[in-house]
Design a protein around this nucleic acid. Structure first.
Length: 337
DNA sequence: CATCCTTTGAAGACA
DNA sequence: TGTCTTCAAAGGATG
């Protein structure tokens, strides 16, 4: 199968996913036929209400979503097989030259999308808002810089890939095989990437509560405690963005402009429908970008695991949500249409 | 002020 | 192995 950048040992693709993807053909066409345009905005707006009120219980809805998700997951696997738009070692995103040109102006720091946002993390402010990939730009993925498994957590299996374009080459010696999180944690403070470039995947010790605690400590803590507080805290390394998230980042501004919507939930619904309306080639771009994101992320943070950011095995938020659903499922009044 | 909503996909947990 | 849960982004809405 065609491999990215000459196919250096990427094991993310799978050939056994063809069936589901083929079967999806008709479905995909139908989706495209019903591709969302801004003319459907009114429809969506009403569906935002109606779709959540109709027959299915949340559990059933969720189940359906997951079934569909699996189909698209299969599709994604297949998409790894589609011819890649790359040239030699350098990926050329045909649509806009990701990562540098992927997002339109509105995503620039002073653009219409972000300017007034106070939700942008400290790390993101003042950095290239375009994509987490930017800092990776200087990362040299050559085998000599491959991280070892020394810092690897048990049970964390990360596939090391040989091939990342020279596009991401790093100033020499910035990341060594022995560099795990602890060895460059100081650099990571305040979201500083080992390269010296802020990285959006790295945020200061997370949680507003934590932050509040820190602020209060300035006034309330004893000297010893204050000193302890000063000690470096583990920065939070965020998950790499998946294909859809990358797509959302790129297209959100466009949808906002077209539909004059502000509410993210509604925008995300539109984006979800548009995502399904994309051709496989169009989606492939984002799957490819996401794959690169993951590769770079795992090379930059070999000891990182998604588990690191888990609130708990069963987070309180979802637990509450589930409890709610159970309550509503016992109350069937909302299930009928 | 914290959490929810809403989407898809990746990854971890668990039976 | 299959299913479920959590979290990535975003910002208005809500309690």
């Amino acid at each position: 199968m065609p491999q990215l950048n000459g196919g250096g040992g990427d094991d993310l693709g799978a050939n056994d996913e063809m069936i589901a993807f083929k079967d999806e053909g008709d479905h995909e066409e139908k989706i495209r036929e019903s591709a969302f345009t801004e003319s459907d905005l009114a429809d969506l707006k009403s569906s935002l209400v109606s779709e959540t009120e109709i027959s299915q219980s949340p559990a059933v809805i969720r189940r359906g979503q997951q079934d569909e998700q699996r189909i698209y997951s299969d599709k994604r696997e297949h998409l790894d097989d589609v011819p890649k738009h790359h040239d030699g070692g350098m990926y050329k995103a045909p649509y806009s030259g990701y990562p540098f040109l992927m997002l339109p102006e509105p995503y620039l720091p002073n653009g219409p999308v972000s300017p007034s946002s106070n939700k942008v993390s400290v790390v993101q402010q003042g950095m290239h808002p375009l994509t987490p990939l930017l800092p990776y730009e200087h990362f040299n993925p050559s085998p000599t810089h491959m991280p070892t498994d020394g810092g690897q957590k048990p049970g964390v299996h990360r596939h090391q890939t040989q091939e990342i374009s020279g596009f991401y080459s790093l100033p020499q010696g910035q990341i060594t095989p022995s560099m795990n999180w602890f060895s460059h944690s100081l650099m990571l403070q305040s979201g500083m990437h080992p390269t010296g470039i802020p990285h959006p995947a790295i945020v200061p010790p997370s949680g507003k509560q934590e932050h509040d605690q820190f602020d209060r400590s300035i006034y309330n803590k004893s000297h010893a405690e204050a000193k302890r507080e000063k000690e470096p805290k583990k920065p939070v390394i965020k998950k790499p963005l998946n294909a859809f998230m990358l797509y959302m980042k790129e297209m959100r501004a466009k949808v906002i402009a077209e539909c004059t919507l502000k509410e993210s939930a509604a925008i995300n619904q539109i984006l979800g429908r548009r995502w399904h309306a994309l051709t496989r080639e169009e989606q492939a771009k984002y799957y490819e970008l996401a794959r690169k994101e993951r590769q770079l992320h795992m090379q930059l943070y070999p000891s990182w695991s998604a588990r690191d950011n888990y609130v708990s095995a069963l987070g309180k938020k979802k637990r509450r949500k589930r409890d709610k659903q159970q309550d509503s499922s016992t109350d069937n009044s909302l299930d009928c249409s």
